[in-house]
Structure formats: structure tokens, C-alpha cells
């Protein structure tokens, strides 16, 4: 009890109570070396809003990425629904734009009110986002989730050209899936091989040959067999590499310049290094620096 004339001793004040159950990022922050700020400040571009794009965006949103661009000019069709978690039958019936639909649904799912997801109803290429200076200024890392070789070539050109223009390296974490098989590759412009360095010379004679997820009126198109399980694994690996790149080694060494191949039918995982190809048609297009 306080007596008359005595000054009450000030009690300690609780400034903030951290409840681990109320923070969606709590469990990942418990990983040694994790820096949530690096995730939240990163600005990423997902090129392709199909099976891989859906899974990649799902992971990005859950991890707390705050600025996500999604580029895809294509429309949702019924055949996408076995592997695209954010698409619904109604979207396919209305032939809604993939990027727009993915952005809307992912925003709904996000536990963070300030997640910004920007859909771009366009493709990569000369008339697409390749030379969109304003966009690339706002990008730190790119995910490749495309379905054909030429898009990968343009992805390489985009990363090289914009890294050169902006004088900073914009890494690309590319992924591809076919049935039980898939692979990822981490390209760092001017430091590693590009996505085209591995292409055999024969590809350049028929570069528009492509395997499409949704079918297309283009010549030489075949429809690729697709399993949601393989898509989930490859997309998770892509996002995992991005996390490591953004943490600059604090969470382990990223697979820079390496290709990781998986064969889920045989349970086989394989990593190899892709050297820079001195005669690569894409690398030689953009001067270093």
C-alpha cells in the first residue's frame, strides 16, 4: 500500500505481446538464418500462369512475398484444372485470362492484407514484357514457368538485356515439367549459362516447335502430359532456390548455374553444372556489364 506523500514506483509496462499463434510467418522465422524482411522486400515476376505458375504463386503468397507480378496472355481451359489450384471450372467456361484469374484468387488466399499481385495479360517476347523498362526496374528475381523453348529463349534475352541496362543482375529460376519428369535451372545473367546455352543446334532450325499445356493453333504443337504432383515438386524447388538466392547464402548455397532433374517414376534426382556456351546465340546478343 502506498502511504500519503509517497511516490508510486512505476510498474514495468508491456509494450507488445508477440503471440506465435497469430503470426502466419512465425514458423518460417524459426529457421536459422531466415530473414522475413528479405522476402517481404523482394519484387518478383512469374512468367507463365499455368501449372507451375499457380504453384509458385501459392508458395510466394504463403511465404509473405509482398509484390508479385504475373505475366500470361493465355486463357484458362478445362484441361488446366488437374494442376492449377487457383482455377475453377467457371473460369474455364468463361475462358478468363490466366494471369488475371491467378492474381485474383491468390490475393483472396493471402493471409497478409498488403500483398500486391499485379497481373499482366501479355507474354514474353518482342511485343511482350521483354523490353518493358518500367516493369524490369521493379523486379529483383524472375520465375520461369513457361511451356515452350522460344519463351525460354526470350526469358534469357529479357534477363540479360535488362540486367545489362539496369546494371544489376536479375536471376531467373526456371522450371519445366512433363508427366513424372521435371527440372529446374538457376540462371544469373553474365555469371552462369543462360537458358539457351544448353540448346542443341538443331533447335534453331525449328524454334517455334512447342509443347502446349492448353493446346494451340500453332503448327507442330503437341500436348504435354501433366501431373499435379510433379508440378508441385518442381514449383516448390523453384521457390526454394529463390529463397536461398534472396538470403545470399544464409540459408544454404543456391543451385547457381546448375540444373536439377527429377524423375518421380524412378525416384531419381540428379544435379549437374551447365557451363556457359561460348557460341550461345542468346548470350552473344547482349554485351556483359
Amino acid at each position: 500500500m502506498e502511504g500519503i506523500g509517497e511516490v508510486a514506483e512505476e510498474k514495468p509496462r508491456i509494450l507488445r505481446i508477440y503471440d506465435p499463434m497469430s503470426d502466419p510467418t512465425d514458423r518460417q522465422k524459426r529457421i536459422r538464418g531466415w530473414n522475413q524482411e528479405r522476402i517481404e522486400k523482394a519484387r518478383v515476376l512469374v512468367v507463365g500462369a499455368g501449372g507451375l505458375g499457380n504453384e509458385i504463386v501459392k508458395h510466394l503468397v504463403m511465404l509473405g512475398f509482398k509484390k508479385i507480378y504475373i505475366a500470361d496472355y493465355d486463357q484458362v481451359v478445362e484441361a488446366n484444372l488437374n494442376r492449377c489450384i487457383f482455377f475453377r471450372m467457371e473460369d474455364a467456361r468463361k475462358r478468363k485470362n490466366k494471369a488475371l484469374t491467378l492474381a485474383e484468387r491468390a490475393k483472396e488466399m493471402s493471409p497478409y492484407p498488403d500483398t500486391e499481385i499485379i497481373p499482366l495479360s501479355t507474354k514474353i517476347g518482342d511485343e511482350g514484357i521483354t523490353y518493358d523498362d518500367k516493369l524490369w526496374k521493379d523486379i529483383d528475381l524472375v520465375f520461369g514457368a513457361v511451356d515452350n523453348v522460344m519463351a525460354r529463349v526470350y526469358l534469357s534475352i529479357s534477363a540479360l538485356y535488362n540486367s545489362h541496362e539496369l546494371k544489376r543482375s536479375i536471376p531467373v529460376v526456371d522450371g519445366g515439367v512433363r508427366a513424372f519428369n521435371g527440372n529446374i535451372f538457376v540462371m544469373v545473367p553474365f555469371k552462369t549459362a543462360c537458358l539457351a546455352c544448353e540448346l542443341p543446334e538443331s533447335v534453331w532450325t525449328d524454334p517455334w516447335k512447342r509443347a502446349s499445356c492448353s493446346g494451340s493453333s500453332l503448327p507442330n504443337v503437341t500436348i504435354s502430359p501433366s501431373l499435379p504432383t510433379t508440378f508441385s515438386v518442381i514449383a516448390a524447388l523453384q521457390v526454394n532456390e529463390a529463397i536461398k538466392i534472396l538470403h545470399e547464402g544464409a540459408l544454404g548455397k543456391p543451385l547457381i548455374g546448375k540444373r536439377l532433374c527429377i524423375d518421380l517414376s524412378r525416384g531419381d534426382w540428379y544435379v549437374y553444372e551447365v557451363p556457359k556456351n561460348k557460341s550461345c546465340k542468346v548470350c552473344s546478343m547482349v554485351p556483359e556489364g
Binding site: 513457361v146 525460354r152 522450371g175 519445366g176 515439367v177 512433363r178 527440372n183 504435354s224 540428379y270
Partner: peptide
């Protein structure tokens, strides 16, 4: 040596 298949649709 290893023979590997690369570049896949996404």
C-alpha cells in the same frame, strides 16, 4: 557419363 533429358514444358 550421364545422358540427361532437359527443357520441358511448364
Amino acid at each position: 557419363l550421364s545422358l540427361v533429358a532437359v527443357f520441358t514444358p511448364g
